[in-house]
Amino acid sequence: MSARELRDRTVARVRSTMTTAMRADSRALDTLAERNPDGLDACTLTFLRTGRTLTLATSAALTTILGAHRYGRDPYDRYVCLACGIERCRTVRAVSDVLAAYGIRMYPIDRPEAWGRADAWYADAAGHPVLLSIESFDEGFIARPATSPPSVPDRGLVIDRDTGALILWPAYDTATLIGQYHAYKNSTL
Rank of each mutant, 00 (worst) to 15 (best):
D173A: 14
M1L: 08
R111D: 07
R117G: 03
T46R: 09
L54A: 14
R144Y: 08
G39I: 05
R70E: 06
A101E: 11
R78M: 02
A60W: 10
A125S: 03
C84I: 09
S26K: 07
S2L: 09
A146M: 14
I109T: 13
T44M: 08
R49I: 02
P150C: 11
N36D: 10
A12T: 13
A123Y: 00
L131T: 15
H128M: 13
V98T: 04
Y181F: 11
T19V: 10
D77R: 13
L54E: 10
L166F: 00
A83D: 12
S187T: 09
A171D: 14
A42C: 01
M106R: 11
V80P: 01
A3D: 12
N186F: 01
P112R: 03
A61H: 14
A21Q: 00
F141K: 04
P145R: 06
D97P: 01
S26P: 04
R7G: 04
P129D: 06
L177C: 10
G85T: 09
A68H: 14
V158Y: 08
G103D: 07
S59K: 00
A24H: 01
E87M: 09
A120I: 07
L6M: 14
G179Q: 15
R155K: 08
T50S: 00
W121F: 09
L177T: 00
N36S: 06
S59M: 04
L45N: 05
H128A: 15
I104K: 01
I159L: 10
E34S: 05
A24W: 05
I142C: 11
W115A: 13
L48Q: 08
T64C: 06
M1H: 14
G127I: 02
D77L: 13
D160A: 15
A165N: 06
P170C: 03
A100K: 12
M1Y: 13
L157K: 05
L29E: 07
K185I: 08
A175M: 05
L54R: 12
H182C: 14
A101T: 01
Y184S: 12
R49Y: 01
E113M: 15
P108F: 07
D74G: 07
D74Q: 03
D138H: 10
R49P: 05
A12K: 04
L45E: 03
V158C: 03
L82K: 12
A126T: 03
G72L: 04
A120R: 13
Y107W: 03
A21M: 03
G85R: 02
R161P: 02
L32Y: 15
I86C: 10
A24K: 08
A175N: 11
A146Q: 09
P149F: 04
E139W: 00
A21D: 04
T31S: 12
D41I: 05
I159M: 05
V158A: 12
D74Y: 04
N36K: 07
R27K: 12
H69Q: 03
L99R: 00
L99S: 05
L6A: 03
T64F: 09
G103W: 11
I86H: 07
T58Y: 13
T63A: 14
D138L: 08
G72Y: 12
R111N: 00
D110L: 02
L54H: 10
S151A: 15
G85P: 04
R35V: 15
G85I: 06
A143V: 02
S2T: 09
R52P: 01
S2Q: 11
T174I: 13
P37Q: 00
A183C: 05
E135R: 15
A61E: 15
W169Q: 06
T174F: 07
D124P: 00
V11H: 00
L62Y: 02
I65G: 02
